[in-house]
Simulated scan of single mutants.
Amino acid sequence: MNLRYGMNPHQRPAALTAIDPDRSPFRFVHGEPSYINVLDAAAGWELVRALGRPAAASFKHVSPAGAAVAGPIDAVQANTYGLDPAATGPLTRAYVRARDADPKSSYGDFVAVSEPVDAELADLLRRVVSDGIVAPGYAPGVVATLSAKKGGRFLVVEADPGFVPPPVETREVYGLRLTQPRDEAPLTVTDPALPDAAVEDLRLGLVIARHTQSNSVAYVRGGMALGVGAGQQSRVDCTRLAGAKVDTWWLRRHPALSGLAEGGRVQEVVARQIRATAALSAVERADWLRGLDGVAFVSDGALPFADNVDEAARHGVRHIAEPGDSVRAAEVAARAAAHGITLTRTGVRLFRH
């Protein structure tokens, strides 16, 4: 099929071809995809389907700004998105939790969800700025609701849950053809000393890292990302940038901001919250940030220096998972122990480029 354009509007014509002409992983229900839309749909769908429960991801530029499994939504999320926590279904809660990790970056996102889209989620999506969605199905009437977004240009993609991708991936770059096996290494956390909640958060972080442009890190708590760092040349810079997102997420919950999550469009509410966090005094910020705890941290590559551990500890991290085997692995482990952080070595690098 013809694409709207390639990575940029001047890259035309652009086209999409299924490797197997008899079966495609996606059906484009409404809208005309661009090259990046297809990449976001593929990465987003792979991420959410790997979690084995109602899950959602908010993608921007081929990396998740946030991802989450279904779970409780707090008062800030409920008021920001105009929802009743007691009456909101699991798929909508998963998406709210995913988008709320970094709602500023999620403006104009590509949505991925693991379950068929119902009317409740469609109504929420009608009220936020996003470019498209991939899901394994749509309830009656939902496609019509979504198709009206963006003046009729909102992209609706249906994924085939039974599709099995080829075991070998191929990419052509500058007259060269690269081939490799698909990255299907099991993502497990087996430390028996870890509480179940930490194991689940670390596994979610590993799935996020697998589908995020490297270098990447993810801070996770309670089944949702609080901050995702992507595409940085320096790992500690990535850790700091993602940590700043974690701080913003937590500061939006400061008691002094309790009335700011009500009234106005979602993005206006978020902007109001973020501006208000900057108005907190240094003492107020520091006191509140010290209250964040129980965060899990995942790195797609080995932590090369202990400064990554120091930075992670500033954002409430209590559990770290990383591949291990860096030159300074012993120093990294010692620093984690000094901070009271459990360190799990997975032995699996998860670079994505």
Rank of each mutant, 00 (worst) to 15 (best):
T80C: 07
K60Q: 05
A159L: 04
A329E: 12
I133H: 13
V266D: 05
L146M: 04
H319R: 06
T239V: 07
T17W: 15
D191P: 01
P161M: 05
V283L: 09
L125D: 03
R314K: 12
I341F: 06
E46M: 09
L202N: 02
E115F: 09
W250N: 11
A50L: 00
M1I: 11
V228I: 12
H10N: 09
T248V: 12
L176Q: 14
V129E: 15
V228Y: 00
E284D: 12
E120H: 09
L125W: 04
A78R: 08
F26M: 12
R253A: 04
T190V: 07
G108Y: 08
V173C: 06
A338K: 14
V48Y: 10
G66S: 10
P161K: 08
P255V: 15
G162A: 09
V270D: 02
A329M: 00
V217Q: 08
K104R: 05
V295S: 05
L121F: 11
A336D: 03
S281K: 10
P304Y: 04
A56C: 11
E158W: 01
V111T: 08
G152H: 10
G44V: 02
E172F: 04
T88P: 00
L83S: 08
P136M: 06
L146D: 00
S105R: 15
A139N: 14
A338M: 06
T145L: 04
W45Y: 14
E172C: 03
I274Q: 04
L257C: 06
F154I: 00
V295C: 03
E158H: 07
V309E: 08
V69K: 07
I341W: 01
D109E: 15
A302Q: 06
T170R: 12
V283M: 07
Y5P: 01
H211K: 14
K245G: 05
